[in-house]
Amino acid sequence: MITQERYRTTVKELLANGSIKMAIGYKPGSTPDRRRPLFIRTSEEAEQLVLDSTCVQNLSGYLVSEGLLSDEKRVGIFLRPEGVRSINILAAEYQLNADQIVIFGFDSTGREVRPLDGRSAREFSGLLNELKEKPLQIYKEPLLERIEKMNAKERFDFWQEEFSRCIKCYACRQACPMCYCRRCIVDSNQPQWVNTSSHTLGNFEWNIVRAFHLSGRCVQCGNCDRACPVNIPLRLINQRMANEVLDGFDHFAGLSATQEPVLASFKKDDTETFIL
């Protein structure tokens, strides 16, 4: 509550003195435990701001809405550490200028919300480096380990079962701050890379492509996983890929705005044990 009130005051001040033109935060949603994005331009709108442990959505995707940042004015945004990582990735991929983003950082343990120090992405680098050292503990998933122990056939069966439910609504893509392409590969039909029907084959292809395009870019904010209407455990694939780039290339996505994207860079001595 204190955090919420304090931030509300800060937002009002920054809006009033013109340091930011808008702040993106949360307001009550359709049920007590749901939140909606709130776009604050006036101090009246700031009154609706809610900040509690149910504010889980990574809002950074809204920053790349067409035209929002093109006037070079600054925009404030409420972010958890994962959200700060997305800002860094978006900046590293030249989708935005990190200096234009004013961060209202927060995190929560249980129902307790606490503010995070720092106003610009750069000031979070200490925190993010700590996260890099301990992500495996935070995201340890018993199911992930179970899948890794299966043989190929069992794994295929597991995912076939999961993917067969996919309805190709692309909510996972829409919810993801890293999925900003104007034209997604699944929307391309000349050539048509991925089957558009939501039969299991097409769903396999779609989910593999989605996961691949997010490898080394996903920040594990969970937006996709929560958005999926049929509860496909997308977090497992995301986590597996994050482990892969961390183990293989010591890459933790979103550490800084100048970090090279892992799949757009290379080292001459990258491992190649699998190459014949």
């Binding site: 076939q160 691949f212 597996r240 890929m241 293989g248 799949l263 860079s265 699998f274």
Partner: peptide
């Protein structure tokens, strides 16, 4: 060099979804 990184990651992804890496070879 770019391809090598991409393959390594893609291979892990195929493996994780049950498409055996034995079926997709690189040389």
């Amino acid at each position: 060099y770019h391809a090598r990184r991409r393959w390594m990651v893609f291979r892990a992804l195929l493996d994780f979804t049950g498409i055996s890496p034995e079926r997709v070879k690189f040389s």
